[in-house]
Amino acid sequence: MSRTAILASCAKMPEGDGDDQAVPAALDDLGFTVRWAPWDDRDVDFADADVVVLRATWDYPDRRAEFLDWCESVPALYNPAAVARWNTDKSYLVELQNAGLLVVPTTLVEPGEQIQWPRASFVVKPSVGVGSRGAARFGADAAGAGEHLRTLHADGRTALVQPYQSSVDTQGEISLTYFGGIYSHAFTKAAMLGSDVDPSGLYLAERMSAAVPAPEVRALAEDAMDTACSLLGILRAELLYARADIVRGEDGHPLLLELELVEPTLGFRHADAGAPLRFASAVRQQLA
């Protein structure tokens, strides 16, 4: 029996960034008819598809309310709308932090609020955003930080303030990818705080390579998955995909930087050939 699968994208990148190139064929092998479509394309009946997978919906930060309304309208959305609502605002990091998870220390600064800046290098970024857009690093003197915060607040954005983890300069961050709650593969990403913007204008370009996570890194990623699912009231198997981004703290211990559950690049280009097959199998699992 043939099933229809739509990979949801955005108008500026209707077929994503190329990382998912092998996914349609893997789904086709399992009986899916696959197409890409921007999430806001009114000519596409997303509700009629057997499965709609959030893949490259990277223009939602400026239209989050509209995007979440659309998510609610799609019955067979993966990951589901409730997950999208929780995970598209990085304030979820504070929830994970309060639950005892080892997270890069995160402080929320709502519009109109002030903050006493950290005494060491730190990062300020919007709580709703993708691809490091709007993220900026500041030194211990905090020069320019106030202006950046005012700019974010002027747009009605809540800001996140986090101490900068210097290990990113030498080790980057490591991303662990899960399908159906089960570990698949990992890859490293170099620091992206800069001006190397993708031609689409949607995100900063990333430099990636395959990686094997250390045991303590993988353990933290597993803890992040379990904690998030507990907060969401779901089983890990109910997440079609997840990506845990982890850095080393100043003491060398791993810290969660982000847990991406909505539209992350999943690193297929830096994984073994079986990764797209595992992903396709996880799609079938969601429908079982």
Rank of each mutant, 00 (worst) to 15 (best):
P163Y: 04
H148D: 02
V130H: 10
A159N: 00
F138I: 03
G139L: 13
T170H: 14
G131H: 09
H148W: 13
T158L: 02
T177Y: 08
A159S: 03
G134H: 02
T177Q: 11
S167M: 05
T151L: 10
Q162A: 04
G134I: 05
D155F: 08
Q165N: 10
L176N: 06
G146V: 08
V130M: 13
A135L: 04
V130L: 12
S175T: 12
F138A: 01
T170R: 14
D141W: 08
F138M: 01
G139I: 14
L160Y: 01
F138W: 08
Q171H: 13
E147D: 15
E173W: 01
D169R: 09
A143Q: 14
H153G: 12
A142K: 03
L152D: 01
L149Y: 01
T151H: 09
P163F: 06
T151G: 05
Q165H: 04
G139N: 10
L152F: 01
L176C: 13
A159G: 05
T158D: 05
S132D: 07
D155G: 14
L160R: 01
H148F: 01
G172Q: 00
Q171I: 02
E173S: 15
H148R: 09
E173F: 08
Q171P: 05
T170M: 12
R150Y: 04
H148S: 04
V161T: 06
R157Y: 02
D169G: 08
Q171D: 15
A140N: 09
D155M: 12
Q171E: 15
L152W: 02
R137F: 08
V130R: 09
G134K: 04
T158P: 00
A145E: 08
S132I: 06
G144Y: 10
V168C: 14
S132H: 12
G134S: 08
L160F: 02
T158I: 05
G146N: 12
Q162K: 07
V130I: 15
D169E: 11
I174S: 10
R150H: 10
Y178E: 04
S167D: 07
V130W: 09
A154C: 07
I174Q: 12
A136D: 04
L152Q: 00
A143D: 15
S132V: 04
V161R: 04
T158W: 05
R137V: 13
Y164C: 07
G139Y: 11
Q162Y: 03
Q165E: 14
A135H: 07
V130T: 13
D169H: 06
D155T: 06
G129A: 15
S132K: 06
D169F: 07
T151R: 11
D141I: 10
L149T: 03
Q165Y: 05
D169C: 03
R157F: 00
R150N: 11
R137E: 11
R133W: 03
F138G: 01
T177R: 00
G172F: 00
